[in-house]
Design a protein around this nucleic acid. Structure first.
Length: 743
DNA sequence: TGAGACGCTGTTTTT
DNA sequence: CAGCGTCTCA
C-alpha cells in the first residue's frame, strides 16, 4: 500500500519494438494466442477457472507495447489494485519497464484520478473526500435524526439496509419506489421516507464535497456523457482498453467501458460468468453476455483448458457448477492427472474443525509443502476465529485477508477524521465525529456548531469565533490549534501523526478506557502505514480505496499460511485449499434465501474450490455455536449433500490423530458426540455409537443442543428432518447426531 | 443536553 | 458480542 499514483501526464513517443519476442507463440495455447494477438476491435474472452486468464492479459499487454502502442495509451481495469500491479510487473518482466507506464487499477481508483481533474465540471471541488460504507451509514444516521425519520418505528430499515437500497437504486438505475416494490416489499410503507433520505443523502454529499463508491463510477460516467470535450479527450487518450473480471461489473461500469472505448473501439474484456460473486455490489453476470450487443462485431474467444487443477478436483468443481440453474455451457478439461480425490470431513464442532485443519497443515508442511502454498477459505470473515486461535497457539504464522480493515477500527477512523478535515474543511461528517469526542459535547451541540459554520468560507476560522460553552471551550480550542498546526504545510505525514497523537491520546484513553492498550497497537501500525505516504490526499484516497488489512503487518518475507474470505481469494491459487464451515446456515449464508442469492452462493463455492491445484478439503462442523453458546446451525451444507459421493473421499482415520487440543484440550468432551470419521474406528466416545435407536415419523426426540422436537420426515435410513420447538427444522444425520427418543 | 447503564437484536461478501 | 435504542440521573 505504497503511494502509487499512476502517471497521467505526458505521452511518450512510441517505443521501438524490442526484439520481436516469440514469447507468445510457445507459451500460449491457440485460444490464448488468439486473445493476445487480436489487438483491434472488441474482444470478449470467456475464461474458465484456471485457464490462464492472467497469463493471457499479461502477454497481451506486453504484446501491445511490443507492437509500438505507447503504454500510456493502454488502460487496464482490474478488480483490485494488487491485481493490476501484479500484471504490470509480470508484463515488465516479459518486455521491459515501459509496461509500468500503463494506466492500471480498479474502476474506482481510476475514477478517482480522473475526477480529481475533471470533477469541477460537476460542481465538485477537487479536494472531495471519498467515503466508505460506514461513513455513508453515518450520514444516514445524521439524516434520520435531522429529518425525524424512523424515530419510534422499530421496523424502519437499519442504516445498513438504507445504504444498500440507495446504492442498488443507483447501480441498477431504478427509482427508490420501484426498487422497494420489487425487492424490499416489506419496506413498502417507508418508500417515501427512503426517497426523502435518498434526496438529502445526495445533497449532503454534494454540499460537503463527499463522494461514495457509487459516486466515483456515476460521476465518471457523467463527465463522459455530459461533457463531450472531456469525453473526446479521454476516448482519444486510450487507444486500448482491457478489463479483467468483467463478470463482476455493473451496468454503470459497462457504460463507462463503452464510452471510454468510443473512439478506437479496441477493447478486450475477460471474465467467467460462473465466477460472478458480487451481485450485492450491483454486478450481474448477465452483463458479460451482453457485451457483444454493446460492441457489435465482438470476437468471442473461449479459454477452456484448465492448467491449474487435477482432474479429480475439476470433476468436483464441474459437479458444483453443473447444479447451477442458469449457466452458459463451457467445458473445462485438464491434462493434469493423479492427485487425490477431494476430502470431505464432518468435524464434531468448530474446535474440532480447527484442530483438524491445523494438524493437517502441520502434517503437510512436514511433508514438504510450503506454508504459503496452502490456504484456508471461508464464507465470512468471522468464520476463521476459532482457527486463528488454534494456529496462534501452535505458532503457525498466517496472513488473513478479508474481514476487518485497518481503517474500519473506530480509533483509526478518528485519526482519519482529523486528516480529512484538514484536506477538506467542508467535510461535516468528519467534523461531527471530532466534535462528539469533546467532553460535554453531544449530538445536539455538535449540530448547532456545524449549522453555524455551514456556509463559512473557512470553517476553521469561523469555529474560532464560535461562542463556545464554558464546559467545552477549552477542548474546542485545543482541537482547533491542532488542526491549524496540521494545516501549515511542511509537516511530513509522520509528523502529522505525532501531532495528532499529542492531542488525541487523552481523548483516546477516555473513549476506549476498557481496552486502549490493545487499540494503541493498531494506532501505531496505522501510523507506520501513514508514515509511508508523502501526500495527504493520496493517503486518504488509499485509506478508502485500498485499505490495509487489520493486523497484517507488511510481509516480512516469511512464508505464511493464507486465511481468506472467498471473495478476497478471487483470482488466486494454492496447492492445497481447505474450505471450512461448509455448513448449514453458514455456507450458503443463512441470509441467502432468494433463489438468485443461493445461486450466487453456489458460484462462490465454485470459486473457492477452483482455487486448488492439488488437494482440496471440504470441512464442516456438526454443531456451530453462536456467541451465547447456544447451537445455531451446523451439519453439512446442502451444497455438499448434493454432490455425487463418488467424487470425494473421507479422511483416513490414521491421517490425523486427535492430540490434545491446543486450546480447550481439557474441556469436558461432551460424551454424546463422536467424531464422525473416527467413529467406525471404535475410538469414538463411549456412549456415542449407542445412539440412533429406530426412530420413526412422528416420534418425539431430544437433541443435546436443539432440545425437543418432532420427526417430520424420514429422508433416508440415516437422515431425518426434525422440527425443534426452539430451533426450527433441522436435517440430522443419525451417524452424527445423538438423538434420544422421548416417551 | 450529555453520559452512562441496561436490555434487545441480529450477524456476508468489497470498492 | 457489539451496536442499537431507551431510560435515568446529573
Amino acid at each position: 500500500m505504497q503511494p502509487t499514483l499512476f502517471p497521467m501526464e505526458p505521452q511518450s513517443k512510441p517505443q521501438p519494438a524490442r526484439s520481436a519476442s516469440q514469447i507468445s507463440r510457445k507459451a500460449l495455447n491457440e485460444a490464448q494466442y488468439e486473445a493476445v494477438t487480436t489487438v483491434s476491435g472488441p474482444v470478449l474472452v470467456i475464461a474458465g477457472a484456471g485457464s490462464g486468464k492472467t497469463r493471457t492479459l499479461v502477454y497481451r499487454l506486453a504484446h501491445l507495447v511490443e507492437q509500438g502502442v505507447p503504454p500510456e495509451q493502454i488502460l487496464l481495469l482490474t478488480f483490485t489494485r494488487k491485481a493490476a500491479q501484479e500484471m504490470l510487473h509480470r508484463a515488465s518482466l516479459l518486455l521491459d519497464d515501459s509496461c509500468r507506464r500503463v494506466m492500471g487499477g480498479t474502476f474506482h481508483a481510476t475514477a478517482n484520478l480522473l475526477l480529481r481533474r475533471y470533477c469541477r465540471h460537476l460542481g465538485y471541488a477537487a479536494n472531495f473526500t471519498i467515503i466508505d460504507q460506514s461513513d455513508a451509514e453515518g450520514i444516514v444516521n445524521l439524516l434520520k435524526s435531522s429529518l425525524n425519520l424512523g424515530g419510534e418505528n422499530k421496523r424502519f430499515p437499519s442504516k445498513r439496509v438504507v445504504i444498500s437500497i440507495l446504492s442498488k437504486s443507483v447501480n441498477k438505475g431504478l427509482g427508490i419506489e420501484e426498487l422497494v416494490e420489487a425487492e424490499y416489499g416489506h419496506f413498502h410503507d417507508f418508500a417515501d421516507d427512503l426517497q426523502t433520505i435518498a434526496l438529502h443523502y445526495k445533497r449532503f454529499k454534494l454540499e460537503h464535497s463527499l463522494m461514495d463508491y457509487d459516486d466515483l463510477l456515476v460521476n465518471w460516467r457523467r463527465i463522459l456523457e455530459e461533457f463531450p470535450e472531456v469525453h473526446t479527450e479521454l476516448a482519444n487518450r486510450f487507444s486500448h482498453i482491457m478489463v479483467d473480471e468483467y463478470q463482476d461489473t455493473n451496468p454503470i461500469q459497462a457504460a463507462i467501458v463503452r464510452l471510454m472505448a468510443a473512439k478506437h473501439n479496441n477493447v478486450m474484456v475477460v471474465g467467467d460468468d460462473s465466477q460472478s460473486i458480487y451481485s450485492f455490489r450491483g454486478a450481474d453476470f448477465r452483463n458479460i453476455m451482453e457485451f457483444p450487443s454493446l460492441f457489435p462485431d465482438t470476437r468471442l474467444i473461449r479459454l477452456e483448458e484448465n492448467y491449474r487443477s487435477t482432474q479429480k478436483i475439476l470433476d468436483l468443481t464441474n459437479a458444483i457448477i453443473e447444479k447451477a440453474q442458469e449457466k452458459y455451457t463451457k467445458t473445462l478439461f485438464t491434462n493434469i492427472t493423479g492427485g487425490e480425490k477431494p476430502v470431505v470431513y464432518g468435524a464434531r464442532d468448530e474446535a474440532t474443525q480447527a484442530r483438524y485443519v491445523a494438524e493437517k497443515i502441520v502434517a503437510l508442511h512436514k511433508a514438504g509443502e510450503p506454508l504459503d502454498e496452502m490456504a484456508v477459505l471461508f464464507r465470512s470473515g468471522f468464520h476463521s476465529y476459532k482457527l486463528e486461535l488454534e494456529l496462534t497457539h501452535r505458532q503457525i504464522e498466517f496472513d488473513k485477508r478479508g474481514g476487518l480493515k485497518l481503517n474500519e477500527l473506530a480509533h483509526n477512523k478518528d485519526v482519519i477524521s482529523y486528516l480529512r478535515v484538514v484536506a477538506n474543511p467542508h467535510d461535516h461528517l468528519s467534523w461531527n465525529r471530532l466534535l462528539l469526542q469533546l467532553d460535554k459535547v453531544g449530538p445536539k451541540t455538535a449540530q448547532n456548531i456545524l449549522s453555524r459554520v455551514k456556509s463559512a468560507e473557512d470553517p476553521l476560522a469561523a469555529l474560532r469565533e464560535y461562542p463556545a460553552g464554558k464546559t467545552w471551550k477549552e477542548g474546542l480550542a485545543d482541537l482547533l490549534e491542532m488542526l491549524e498546526a496540521l494545516r501549515q504545510s511542511g509537516m511530513s505525514m509522520g509528523q502529522m501523526f505525532e501531532r495528532i497523537m499529542d492531542y488525541y491520546e487523552p481523548i483516546f484513553e477516555r473513549l476506549y478506557h476498557d481496552d486502549y492498550p490493545r487499540r494503541r497497537r493498531d494506532l501505531d501500525e496505522f501510523g507506520r502505514v501513514m508514515g509511508g505516504y508523502v501526500e495527504l490526499q493520496s493517503f486518504l484516497d488509499d485509506a478508502s480505496l485500498d485499505p490495509p488489512q487489520a493486523g497484517a503487518l507488511e510481509p516480512d518475507g516469511g512464508k505464511r499460511l493464507v486465511l481468506s474470505t472467498i471473495h478476497s481469494a478471487k483470482g488466486l491459487e494454492w496447492d492445497t485449499v481447505f474450505i471450512i464451515n461448509l455448513a448449514e446456515g453458514r455456507f450458503p449464508s443463512a441470509q441467502a434465501v432468494l433463489p438468485a442469492h443461493r445461486e450466487e452462493e453456489r458460484r462462490l463455492l465454485y470459486v473457492a474450490a477452483t482455487r486448488a491445484r492439488k488437494q482440496l478439503y471440504l470441512v464442516y462442523p456438526q454443531e456451530v455455536m453462536s456467541y451465547d453458546s447456544s447451537a445455531a446451525a451446523g451439519g453439512p451444507s446442502p451444497f455438499l449433500q448434493e454432490l455425487p459421493h463418488a467424487l470425494t473421499q473421507s479422511p483416513s482415520p490414521a491421517a490425523w490423530q486427535s492430540q490434545s487440543s491446543a486450546y480447550g484440550g481439557g474441556q469436558e468432551e461432551r460424551p454424546d458426540y463422536s467424531i464422525p470419521p473416527l467413529k467406525s474406528a471404535s475410538s469414538a466416545s463411549p456412549s456415542g455409537s449407542s445412539s440412533a435407536p429406530s426412530i420413526k415419523l412422528g416420534n418425539r426426540v431430544r437433541h443435546p443442543f436443539f432440545g425437543e422436537g418432532v420427526v417430520e420426515k424420514v429422508v433416508s435410513p440415516k437422515s431425518l428432518e426434525v422440527l425443534f420447538a426452539r430451533h426450527g427444522k433441522k436435517t440430522l444425520h443419525l451417524d452424527y447426531a445423538k438423538l434420544e427418543l422421548v416417551q
